[in-house]
Amino acid sequence: MNPVARISLIVAYAVLALAALGRSSYQISTKLSEAPVPYLVSGVSALLYLVIAIALWRRWAGVALVGTAIELAGVLVVGTLGYVEPSWWADETVWTGYGSAYGWVPLLLPLAALILLVRERRARAARAVASSTAPSAATTGDAR
């Protein structure tokens, strides 16, 4: 992955993690009984952002890929359920309205991250195929 894109993603996820961690830790510690599901969802999203930021930093591509996929699924499910079953949500979460309170960054960021991670995965696979075929071609050439 382009290092500029990777570090920009890390910064964006670190900021989101900071925002979500602050919000959810305050909500969970002071008023969890008022709306347990939304506040716990916000807490889970905060932990997910933290894990993805660390995974991108440490180059744990598999963890980052799974984390961003879960994040995207969470945004889509929670965002849709917020409109379909508003009675389930006593308060807003980070993913409510597809992350509208955060400028839709929670929706756009996993899309961008998934595109970059999948592209990197394909490039790595192509490199692995190329490197595994190159020695055999050389061997064939030697045999002649």
């Binding site: 290092p3 500029v4 570090i7 920009s8 910064v11 964006a12 900021v15 900071l18 925002a19 400028g103």
Partner: peptide
């Protein structure tokens, strides 16, 4: 690349 990374971080931090 350092300039671009700093620039992206500055834009994100400024908004936040």
């Amino acid at each position: 690349q350092i300039a671009r990374v700093d620039a992206a971080a500055a834009a994100i931090v400024a908004i936040a």
